[in-house]
Every structure is written in C-alpha cells, then in structure tokens.
Design a binder for these strands. Sequence first.
DNA 1: GTACGACTTAAGGCACCGGC
DNA 2: GCCGGTGCCTTAAGTCGTAC
Length: 500
Amino acid sequence: MRTLELWTDSFHEGEWFMHNIKKLCGASSCHYIHNFIPSYTVELDPANNIEMIVYGSYKSWENIPSKINTLLEMGKPDIILYERESDEIILAIEETAAVPTGNQALQRCERIFGSAYLKIPFIYLLPEYGLHKDGNVRRASIWPTLLGLKLSLQFQVPSISLLYSDIDNPEDYSKGTGLDMLFQYTYYLIKQHLGVMDKSEYQKLTALTTDIITEMCAFVISQFDKIIRFFPDLLRFKKKAFAILLAHRILDKESKDVDITIDKFLLWPLTKDRGIPAEFKDVSLGAINNNDFLLAIDDCVRKNKGYVLSQGVGTRPQSKKDISGWFKIQSAFSKQLNLPYKKPSADLKKTDKGNYHITTSKNITYLIDALEDIDNAYAAAFPQHGLSLNKLLINTAALPVFLYICNSLKPRRMFGDPFTGQFAAFANIFCYSGTYRKIRNAIIYLPYQSAGCFYDKDKKLTRNKGTAIYSLLADIVICNDGYVVSFQDKGKLYGKENTL
DNA sequence: GTACGACTTAAGGCACCGGC
DNA sequence: GCCGGTGCCTTAAGTCGTAC
C-alpha cells in the first residue's frame, strides 16, 4: 500500500481535505499514530488502497522533507500532498474565504508562482463573490486567474484557480463549481501520480482540465474591464481551441507544441506599437507627495512613452506618531551600512482627519517602453550616485520596463503579504512571455525603505520570502535616496560608495 | 458642476509562532 | 517576556458613474 502525506498549516485543513476526498473514494478508516497523528486508509478504487497521513502545522515537525521546505520559502500553501517514497510533491492547494478587495486579492500569488516554478501542480480555491464589511458584494480579481493560465503555459504544469459561491450567496462553498472541481481534479492527480489511471479516466481528466481552463478564460473575459482599461489577448481567451491546447500542454509534457503563437500569450504591448487608446486619456497621474523620480516617470506617460494599468488609485495615510517612529528605524537600518537616510524634503500632505499621506506617485504600476527613460529619470533624481541603470542592466538594457512602486514606510513590511504576492503576479505577467522568455525588466522602487532593510548585521542579503521572490523575478530594487540592490547581481548594493 | 454613494486601491493591524 | 517574521484581514481615502 502506497503512503501519501498531507502537510498542512493546521489539522483542521487536513481534516477538511480528507472529508472531501473520501466522498470520491470507497471505504475508508482512520486511526491515530502516537495517539494524535491521523492516518487514513482509503480505497482509491477497488484495486488500490492508499494510506494518507495528516501532518498539521508545518513547523511542528522535524522530518519535514527538503522539497516541502524549498516550496515553503516562496510562501506557504494551505495543503501540500507529498509522497516520501518517490520524494515527489503531488499537489499544493491554497484555499481562502477572503473578500477580494484591493491588493489583498493578489497576496497569495507568490505561492502560485513558486509552485509552478518548481513544477508542482497548484490549485487555488477562492470565492467568486465575497461580502465586504460595508455590506456590499465584491467579485474576484482577474490577476490570480491570469497568472495561473500563464504559468500553466510556461511551466507545463497545472496552475488553476477555481471559484465558488454566486452573487446571491457570497462566500458559500456549496454554490458554484469550485469545490467539486477541486476534489475531482485532486482525485485524478493522485491516480495519475500512482500510475493507476486507466484510459477512460485519462480522457475524463483531459475533459475536466479543458473545462477548468475554459471557465478560467470565461471569468477573465467577463471581469477584466472592471479592473483594467485594456486587455491584450481577448480573442485567444474566447477560443475553445486555446483551452484544448493548454490542457494538452499541461497533461502531455512529451508533446511537441504546434502552436507557435504561445510565446505571444498575454503580451502587454509597447505604447509606440499600439498608441494610446481613448480609454487611457483620462488616466490619473501625478503625485500626492512630491517625488522627482516618479514625476519624471509620469512625464514619460504623458509623452506616450509608457502607460499605467490601474483603474482608480489608492492611498493609505498613517498617523504622525507612527510615521516618525518608522523614519527612526529606517535611519537606523541605513546607519548599519554607513549610508544616509533621506526623508522627504517637504512635509507629508495632511488629510482631513489629521493623518498624513505617505503616497508618492498615485499609480504603483507602470509599463515603460524604454529602460533609457527610467535611466534618465533616475540620473536626474539621484545624480549623487553617478550610476547608469543602462550599464547596471547591461544584459537586458534593450528590454522595456515594468516599474513597481511600494510606498510602504514600515521597515521590511514590503517583504511580506500583500506586496510580495502582488509583485510576483505582475512581474510574471508583464515581464515573461508564454514560454518564460524574459521580455521586460522588472524594477522595484521603494521610496522610503532603506537599502539597509535588505541586509543582516553581517551585511549579507537577508533571507525571507521577499528576497526569495525578488531573486527570481526582480532585476533591481531602487531604495531610499537612490541606493540600488541588484538582483541581477545576487543582491549587491550599488551607490556612490559602491560598497557591499 | 456638484453632491452622493458604490466601488477600488494600497497601506498597516494584528494574531500567531518561534527564537532568544 | 519580547521581538521579528509571516500571513490573513481591515480600513482611510481616492475614483467615478449618476442624478439633478
């Protein structure tokens, strides 16, 4: 009898998984190892029994397999299904009831990316409709679904998002197709992994995969215009042939693709190639708090050298007391590296309620046609360093740029949720082609974060979820006062001192 | 044009946990 | 006990459509 291990954040999630997967199987029984570790024997089909052991709370165990540890470095999925005998992760699952508001909808995307990057199948189960605290219903974001489709194509591994609930029953598991599809798909993946899948079941798996992709595409088509002003690949998303092709690519890794347009999947064009459509004309530019670098980037957009995608912008003001405390800690981080810390030259703008805006640029995502324009803006705003971004990024200097801004002031906050997930989603979607060919530079700008936040007391790059993701997806990070951490150069710090 | 309110965004709060 | 990292969730304030 083969034994599978269920690694979860809590026993509760393990029990939830077993409760649902058992429904698709024959007889089952449960006993407890050492009186507390649940071990199920499940009749997968009349010819195959399997044992499933539930390990709750990842960090409580000493024998955690190294493959699971590697996956956890890029974010913690709720459930990981693993077989020790073959040392293979069969599947990772993320399950949430969170209402999709703002960047929260993107906060789990680094897990989606991490799994696909490690060629591990991933299923994300989330509500299509959620009840917001204001009493109104919100519909899910398109970004996790877009990311899943792109990753499935790039890494030839299932990365799917499944939706539950409906508009009249927000957050209700029993509505919609998501929950049923999750466990049906899981059941097939287990059988496929164990090599006990017959031909008719493989056909059913193919049909199910095609259905899931069709639903993911349909969801994006019905929802994109609520979230972005422009969507680049609509025709493909409407074609059933694409769902069939992608299902085939995911399930039959030996197959040679015949569709040479895969590389152009979801390609975000240059302004100079497509011009500025009318819907971009009224886009909101400008800064709340003055920032020379970002004002120059806004100018690029005004001159048709790039565009922004956000629809509506947000600001999250903070109290004066918190702000001054965080500035002190940021300064201390800079001091550790003997760097200056530069506060904004003018006072932060005050809100009606007496808080202060920390927002610089109102948009946090820019797609800029040429690195040269970013380089010019950088050189004008931070002349003291004498740095050329064109030279720093010499291997990718010909590529356009995705610029991500995080105005977070609280030290090291940007390494955690929701920022890491948001960056991971955008960096993959904007900066890599359908065959995972790099097509844009990914540049992060953190106006308030000291470069010192990136290093420990021994001046080594800190190891956390943020730096793990940046190492894979970011080219450079521009920190406070223009100091640059280069992830093309293993986290080396650049500035006028040219130190680390 | 402006007032309103439904809706979106972007930031930290906070609970939990592990190391010291 | 405190402190820092992580991850789920809350919320200040801006946006934008609509009605007058």
